[in-house]
Simulated assay, not measured.
Amino acid sequence: MALIDVKTAAARLSTLVDGLDETTARGDSVLPGWSRGHVITHIANFSRAFTRQVDYALRGELVEVYDGGRPARDADIEAGAHRPAAELVADLDQALTALLAAWDRVGPEDWSRPILHRNSTLAHGIDATWRELVIHTSDLGLGPTPDEWPAHFCTHLLDFLRPRTPDGVHLILRPSDGPVWENGTGEDRVLTGTLTALTAWYAGRAQIEGAPELLPWP
């Protein structure tokens, strides 16, 4: 993917939450148990964490994604979710601005630099940033849905989520508006629909009747 995809996703998110009011901030997101304040806080915290991943990588150093690991990540989301709407939006804008500035500092020779996020590289890290911004923008439940995910994003996400296919299943997705996609070995399970609907199901954001139960996110 290209940095422009990340910048496009960030701009869309910022525009979406601009002027967020208190009632909307406290309202339910698409994610069970999370308000929109939870989602916004998570995106802001993720953005800061990834800014740090980039900054350290460019110095030839490694750093944990979240100090204190998953428990600290979850506690920080809960602690920040109930802030006033204006504070949520300002924090998100500041975090996204810093994140995009960090990615702008990555040169052509830097993409192979290692990071601790998934024990991968900056090239994989910008893909992770893209996924977080696009998916969680839909999770806010403020208008954009997975039906609007770009085709090249869907293709990327399907390939990233291949480990979700259960053992013993040969999963065959036949989108009405795209090429056939296959993964796994075993019993054939064929699902049909639009590319976005099938991708949303594989990402845990939609239901498809008769679909197999998926494994956790990789």
Rank of each mutant, 00 (worst) to 15 (best):
V134L: 10
P166T: 09
L173Q: 00
G168C: 05
H136L: 10
L116Y: 07
R131T: 14
H117G: 11
L171P: 03
L198N: 07
R189A: 13
D167W: 08
W149Q: 02
L198V: 01
T192F: 10
D167G: 12
N119Y: 12
T196F: 09
S112E: 14
G143F: 08
H152T: 15
E132N: 00
L173V: 03
R189G: 07
T145G: 01
P150L: 04
T194K: 01
G143L: 00
R118F: 13
D167R: 11
G125C: 03
T129F: 04
A102D: 03
R105W: 03
R105C: 10
A101V: 13
E109H: 15
E109M: 12
E187Q: 15
V106W: 00
T155M: 10
D127N: 14
V134I: 15
A151Y: 07
A151P: 07
L173W: 07
T121R: 05
T185W: 14
D104E: 14
H152N: 13
V134C: 00
G125R: 08
V169A: 06
R174C: 14
G186I: 04
L173N: 01
A101K: 13
W130D: 09
D159L: 08
G125Y: 07
A102P: 02
A123H: 11
L116K: 14
P144F: 03
T137D: 04
R189S: 12
H117A: 15
D139M: 01
D110R: 04
S120L: 11
S112G: 14
V134H: 05
G107N: 09
S112C: 12
P175Y: 01
D104M: 06
A128I: 12
G186H: 03
I115D: 09
N183A: 15
S138K: 07
G193T: 08
A102Q: 06
L157E: 08
L140G: 02
I115V: 15
A101D: 15
L191R: 00
V190F: 10
R118G: 09
I126W: 06
S112V: 13
T137N: 06
T185R: 15
H156I: 05
C154G: 09
L116I: 11
D104Q: 11
L195E: 02
W130E: 07
R131D: 11
F160K: 14
L198P: 01
A197Q: 11
T155R: 14
L191G: 03
E109F: 06
L161V: 09
E109A: 15
L157N: 02
H156N: 13
G125N: 01
S176W: 04
G193N: 08
A102L: 02
H136T: 00
G143E: 08
T185Y: 14
L140Y: 01
G125D: 03
